[in-house]
Simulated scan of single mutants.
Amino acid sequence: MKRWQWDLGFTVVAGAVIAFMAFDDGPGPRAAFVSSLLVAAALAWYFLYGRRHIFRTVTPRGAWIFVSVLAVLHLAAVWIDHTASFALFAWGTMIFASVPRRPSVAIVAALTLLPVPMTYLRDGTLSLVHGLLPLTALGLAFALLLGTFVSHLVEQNEERAAMIAELSASRAEVARLSHEAGVATERARLAAEIHDTLAQGFTSIITLAQAAESATDPDTVRRRLTQVAGTARENLAEARALVAALSPADLHTSGLGDAVRRQLSRLASQTGIRTACHLDRHFDPGPADLPTALQVVLLRSLQEALTNVRRHARATSVEVRLALTGTTVVLTVTDDGVGFTTTAPGSGFGLAGMRSRVEQAGGVCTVDSHPGTGTTVKVELS
């Protein structure tokens, strides 16, 4: 039941008791009026104070204060006019909803039984006591039955509150774990971004600077320094894009096909390695209609593969193929370098980061290499 339904029931019971006393030929109009005022005061006490303390999972001090004052008002009304004892049908429910079951049973039983000796003390005769006993027994049974029902509702509320608290705690734990997982994923992503952009750019700058340092021809030195400056500018652009959480700078000004060509041209000019670029019609001449996230993964994979060629392969030529077959994009990078054993444990972050990035995008990254036969890196994204 909703709270307003309980309020309506309590009001109806109290109103019925007051109306019954008004038309009853009891101890007199004055006594009925005073007793009615006490019943009304008990109902007002509920609305003004007690309402906030019932149906609670934890019994506060205020609930005991409410029950104590309610019991005093009820007994005072019953002392003046015994008809007011019928209001216990409302007060008993309030008591069971306010305090635990055992003390509630004791309090309601006391309030039901006390009117019998109170009647004897007030009238000094047993003439009315004999008539009250059956009604008192019936009222006690009904009050305990109703109290058991109300206590069951309170226990259900306690269980529901415990379940809600447990669910809230579980949600908080899930949110915490999700946050930690998100932080770890973002750290891994940033580590891959830094490795694929800034670290590779600095490696190129160091290589070009060492080549310029060992060169004796002024024109060669000048050309290498020009390449150092160009690579530094590109690295700066990548750093700014990374800080702004944007896609690679190469993709801002042109499509993926042009970005692939620029990567190969840069490799050829800096290392002298022969390069070949094969783009199908989806990437040449214009940009392919691919999500930016997939283009970023493809470009980063190409950069990592070319960095490995530059640093480890000792290759003389590199061939890159980019094709769109149906809904699958395939990037293939093949070199004629020294190769390596793919089953051997690696010490670098590059290939592991490439595979992780591709797998997070729902793709597959394969590396085919053997000592002395070169290396082929293949990335497939759908």
Rank of each mutant, 00 (worst) to 15 (best):
residue 173 E to D: 11
residue 170 S to Q: 15
residue 314 R to H: 10
residue 65 I to C: 11
residue 363 G to F: 02
residue 40 A to S: 11
residue 209 A to R: 11
residue 287 P to K: 12
residue 271 T to V: 02
residue 305 A to D: 07
residue 147 G to N: 13
residue 198 L to K: 06
residue 267 L to W: 08
residue 281 R to H: 01
residue 41 A to S: 12
residue 275 T to P: 08
residue 10 F to S: 05
residue 69 V to M: 01
residue 348 G to C: 12
residue 371 P to N: 01
residue 229 A to V: 15
residue 326 G to N: 14
residue 325 T to F: 06
residue 74 H to Q: 13
residue 5 Q to F: 10
residue 267 L to P: 04
residue 231 T to A: 02
residue 287 P to L: 12
residue 64 W to K: 06
residue 78 V to P: 07
residue 282 H to D: 15
residue 151 S to K: 06
residue 367 V to F: 00
residue 357 R to V: 05
residue 82 H to P: 01
residue 362 G to T: 05
residue 12 V to G: 05
residue 113 L to I: 01
residue 318 V to Q: 02
residue 234 E to C: 03
residue 376 T to D: 13
residue 125 T to C: 01
residue 352 A to Q: 14
residue 175 A to G: 07
residue 55 F to K: 08
residue 277 C to S: 11
residue 317 S to A: 15
residue 58 V to M: 11
residue 130 H to W: 14
residue 310 R to D: 03
residue 178 S to R: 14
residue 371 P to S: 00
residue 60 P to W: 08
residue 48 L to E: 04
residue 177 L to W: 12
residue 56 R to Q: 05
residue 355 R to G: 10
residue 49 Y to D: 05
residue 13 V to K: 06
residue 377 V to I: 12
residue 42 A to I: 07
residue 147 G to W: 05
residue 56 R to S: 02
residue 260 V to K: 01
residue 46 Y to M: 00
residue 79 W to G: 02
residue 369 S to G: 03
residue 175 A to Q: 13
residue 104 S to D: 10
residue 336 D to C: 05
residue 91 W to L: 14
residue 134 P to W: 13
residue 180 E to A: 07
residue 204 S to R: 15
residue 258 D to W: 00
residue 263 Q to D: 15
residue 337 G to R: 02
residue 75 L to D: 10
residue 201 G to I: 06
residue 208 L to F: 09
residue 217 D to G: 07
residue 359 E to W: 04
residue 294 L to D: 12
residue 192 A to P: 07
residue 259 A to T: 00
residue 231 T to C: 02
residue 263 Q to I: 04
residue 33 F to Q: 13
residue 133 L to N: 00
residue 327 T to D: 15
residue 112 T to Q: 09
residue 114 L to Q: 00
residue 353 G to D: 03
residue 332 T to A: 12
residue 5 Q to W: 03
residue 72 V to H: 06
residue 66 F to P: 00
residue 269 S to Y: 03
residue 89 F to C: 13
residue 86 F to V: 13
residue 178 S to D: 14
residue 224 R to H: 10
residue 352 A to G: 07
residue 258 D to N: 08
residue 20 F to I: 04
residue 55 F to S: 00
residue 339 G to A: 04
residue 24 D to H: 12
residue 241 A to R: 13
residue 144 L to C: 04
residue 118 M to H: 02
residue 280 D to P: 06
residue 150 V to A: 09
residue 322 L to D: 11
residue 63 A to W: 08
residue 174 V to G: 09
